[in-house]
């Protein structure tokens, strides 16, 4: 059977492979190479070794600042989103009437795209700040808080759904047994429910982590990095280097490689954590 199937390679694999080469394979290889070159278009590249990488980390480039902003935002967003989502999931697994309605409404913001969402929140936050004579770009703190609020609004419902699925899989007998043994509601939560939903917690933490870390659209729409690029996240900083400064395309590409390495490290960490958990079970 395998032999006959093999003859059908051009039908089964080739269309996907060709498109995949255009969008990913060839650009990726070119991208790695060009990070060591000076260029303004792909055609006029000149090898310059590691100088793009050195420039990428120089103070004027704002890459380090963007990293710190991104890291701080990611940390706050991951914690707030997951705590809120878990609390809401707890409320929605108490077998009350109307649970389905609330679940449906809470999940909805997740479907709205980053650009549309970013401007909706920008308008609303500005409406509030306007009463005090300022706007969201008057102070980087506003931009930071705005991004955290927006991200929570978008992702709490999504994570909540995953936590609900996890909580529903906790066997009822286990909770009953704990209650018969005289465990308080708090003890049941921390000693039974949370340990039992650890796999969901791992998934949610990594989903929020990588989504927050790679954030672009929301950042562009909400503040576009203003004021003075102080609310610029990594993805936007790279974009800005590519398209905002002529002659700096090589530096942008070098930054993109660094960005890729960080993201890959996060994914590897996730795999390691998940695999260790599987062994324990």
């Amino acid at each position: 059977m395998e032999k006959t199937l093999k003859k059908y390679f051009p039908v089964f694999v080739l269309p996907t492979l060709i498109a995949f080469s255009f969008s990913f394979l060839i650009p990726f290889i070119q991208g790695v190479y060009l990070s060591f070159c000076n260029f303004t278009t792909v055609g006029n590249a000149k090898w310059v070794g590691l100088s793009n990488y050195k420039l990428a980390f120089s103070a004027g480039e704002g890459f380090g600042r963007a990293f710190l902003f991104t890291a701080a935002f990611t940390l706050v967003a991951v914690v707030t989103i997951n705590v809120l989502a878990f609390l809401v999931a707890l409320l929605l697994t108490r077998k009350l009437r109307g649970t389905n309605f609330f679940r449906t409404v809470f999940f909805m913001p997740n479907l709205i795209g980053g650009i549309v969402l970013g401007y909706t929140w920008q308008q609303m936050i500005n409406a509030v700040l306007h009463q005090h004579g300022v706007t969201i770009v008057s102070d980087p703190t506003y931009g930071f808080i705005g991004l955290v609020l927006l991200m929570n609004w978008q992702m709490v419902g999504y994570m909540m759904i995953i936590y609900i699925a996890g909580l529903q899989n906790v066997p009822g007998e286990l909770i009953e047994a704990a209650q018969i043994d005289g465990a308080t509601a708090m003890q049941t939560l921390f000693r039974v429910k949370i340990p039992m939903v650890m796999p969901s917690i791992t998934i949610c933490i990594f989903l929020t982590l990588s989504n927050s870390f790679k954030l672009f659209d929301q950042n562009l729409a909400l503040t576009a990095g203003a004021p003075m690029k102080k609310t610029q996240m990594l993805a936007l900083n790279i974009y800005d280097t590519f398209y905002g400064k002529n002659g700096y395309q090589g530096v942008g590409q070098a930054k993109a490689v660094v960005f890729f390495v960080i993201v890959a490290a996060i994914v590897v960490a996730q795999l390691l954590v998940t695999r260790r958990k599987e062994v324990e079970q």
């Binding site: 969008s23 060839i26 792909v42």
Partner: peptide, 16 residues
């Protein structure tokens, strides 16, 4: 390819 962020290929992809 799922791991690679878009910024990594964006410039070269548009050129291609």
């Amino acid at each position: 390819s799922m791991v690679v962020p878009f910024q990594m290929v964006m410039f070269t992809m548009v050129d291609l």
